[in-house]
């Protein structure tokens, strides 16, 4: 598969068939971003399609200030937010990220180091992620799954780096709490 620069160059030269490759490459990630915010399959599918339509028509204006990946994710983030606003769902955000003192998370690690079945752990992780606040699910997904840096997450979500860190810390705490309680109830 071609790298992003090559894809972008060929697309700008008028070879729009390379766009198929871009869709194949980013479709799972864009869908995961939409799903982590919208938490509804049908809507996430619809928004994912709209994101690729938008990216297709904006590619020629893309100036390369961020990576193509970050730019596509940002479009996915904004499209998901627009849908939530249309449906009057309070997405967000993060009440002031500094409003609570940050809890020490070290006592929630039981879930991670418990020697239980890997598949069960992953199932628990998936279910717990769905129960988190959308912004926490998104930040954790971007950080741990897509290995985006705090800077890149800030660019995508328009949060400051320190806010991203706070949301990440709080999200991790909440995730591990939920995972632990699910593991203990099994």
């Amino acid at each position: 598969m071609k790298n992003d620069d090559a894809l972008l160059r060929e697309f700008k030269q008028g070879n729009t068939t390379v766009y198929k490759e871009l869709i194949k490459k980013y479709k799972p990630y864009v869908y995961t971003i939409c799903m982590s915010l919208i938490k509804n399959r049908e809507d996430s599918e619809e928004v994912t399609q709209d994101v690729f339509v938008k990216v297709y028509y904006s590619m020629n204006q893309f100036k390369g200030k961020s990576s193509l990946k970050t730019w596509v994710y940002k479009i996915a983030y904004n499209a998901s937010l627009s849908l939530l606003q249309k449906k009057n769902k309070s997405f967000l955000v993060y009440d002031d990220p500094h409003s609570e003192t940050l809890e020490d998370e070290s006592h929630h690690h039981e879930f991670l180091f418990e020697k239980s079945d890997r598949e069960i752990k992953i199932e628990i992780l998936k279910r717990s992620l769905k129960e988190l606040k959308p912004i926490e699910t998104l930040v954790l997904t971007l950080f741990y799954l897509k290995e985006q840096s705090v800077n890149e997450i800030g660019e995508i979500t328009s949060l400051t780096n320190s806010n991203v860190r706070v949301v990440l810390h709080r999200g991790r705490n909440n995730l591990l709490k939920k995972c632990n309680s699910k593991l203990n109830s099994k």
């Binding site: 479709k27 799972p28 399609q49 690729f52 297709y56 991670l112």
Partner: peptide
Amino acid sequence: KIDDELFELFSEMGVSTPKDLTTEKILLKI
């Protein structure tokens, strides 16, 4: 250690898209 374990779990969890969401469907919409 927590981060490493989470990175591993998330990567094992991976990403998936529904079968209905095909590349052709997106191209048709474009």
